[in-house]
């Protein structure tokens, strides 16, 4: 009995290992191998917005061309991205949650934080605008009106950069959102947008995601361009002093690359052809 099951387990293990080997082989073969050396892979945790907007699809291949590094993108909320960084599971972070980023560096998990770019958040809502805030220039004022009208408002509720930003807007307006009208949905941006559209509610959304998805839904921008709604993205290398396994050199290459003129220009141009406006404004170098 025992011998048999042991043999079975061994066989299963063998099968798994050989399968895994095959999978890796399959991944490797189509890539043109410039150097016989092992492929250099950089693990980056980032927010869903950079992935969903398509920005990374433009940047990642270019980075590979310039440095030979393949970037494995793990797109999650800013909170989870930093949690991954604080466990040493990734090499570099591209996130937008300024306060948390500073704490991450202060706690010694990250080094070399640099501003990369920013985009901005917009407040969107149904066309009939039940809280009557369309055209409001002061976002705090708009939030107050939503709360007073008890108009349905959807909160990401997932500690993402967007959620953090939303909470900071309520705090700045000295409000405490509570009640049935305030729905904490615990979802990504795209899902929250879709739900807000179904429920005819207001929600805070980053402009990139909004532009990418707006044709599918009916919600419109009601408040935008107030200064608290700006959303800066930072890049952080995970501290090699804390985790010996991270690829610090690769991370630093990426930090330098994305803050240099070439990548910054690409960021400035990104989205213009499709949406008629830039989705992200580069911050690292001055671009005319």
């Amino acid at each position: 009995m025992k011998k048999k099951s042991l043999a079975l387990i061994l066989m299963l293990l063998f099968a798994l290992v050989s399968l895994a080997g095959c999978a890796k082989e399959a991944e490797k073969t189509p890539a043109p191998a410039p150097a016989p050396a092992a492929e250099k892979i950089l693990k980056m945790a980032t927010t869903t917005s950079t992935q969903d907007s398509g920005l990374l699809d433009a940047l990642v291949p270019e980075f590979k061309k310039d440095t030979g590094y393949t970037i494995n993108v793990i797109a999650v909320g800013s909170g989870q991205a930093m949690e991954m960084g604080s466990k040493g599971d990734v090499d570099v972070l591209l996130v937008h949650s300024r306060a948390a980023e500073d704490k991450f560096v202060a706690d010694g998990f990250g080094v070399n934080r640099k501003d990369v770019m920013h985009n901005d958040f917009v407040l969107i809502g149904p066309a009939d605008d039940p809280a009557k805030i369309k055209g409001e220039t002061d976002v705090a004022q708009a939030m107050t009106k939503i709360l007073k009208a008890k108009a349905t408002f959807l909160s990401r509720g997932d500690k993402s950069g967007t959620h953090t930003k939303e909470l900071s807007l309520w705090t700045k307006a000295n409000l405490k959102p509570e009640g049935d009208w305030y729905k904490n949905v615990g979802k990504g941006m795209g899902d929250t947008f879709r739900m807000a559209d179904e429920m005819k509610g207001y929600t805070l959304i980053d402009r990139a995601t909004y532009l990418a998805l707006k044709d599918k839904y009916k919600l419109e921008i009601v408040v935008e361009k107030d200064s608290p709604m700006l959303n800066p993205y930072g890049v952080i290398a995970v501290n090699k002093a804390k985790f010996a396994n991270v690829d610090y050199d690769g991370a630093m290459k990426f930090v330098e690359w994305i803050t240099a003129e070439k990548a910054q220009k690409m960021i400035a141009e990104f989205g213009k052809d499709k949406y008629g406006q830039s989705l992200f404004i580069p911050d690292a170098v001055a671009i005319k």
């Binding site: 999650v76 909320g77 909170g79 989870q80 930093m82 949690e83 991954m84 509720g157 997932d158 500690k159 729905k183 904490n184 949905v185 615990g186 979802k187 899902d191 739900m195």
Partner: peptide, 25 residues
Amino acid sequence: MLVGGNIEGSTRVLTTSIVLETRMG
């Protein structure tokens, strides 16, 4: 997750909580 929407206090259940808590680290 899809039809409930994971709304806190209303449609958030054990499994969707696990997804959310994991996403939040």
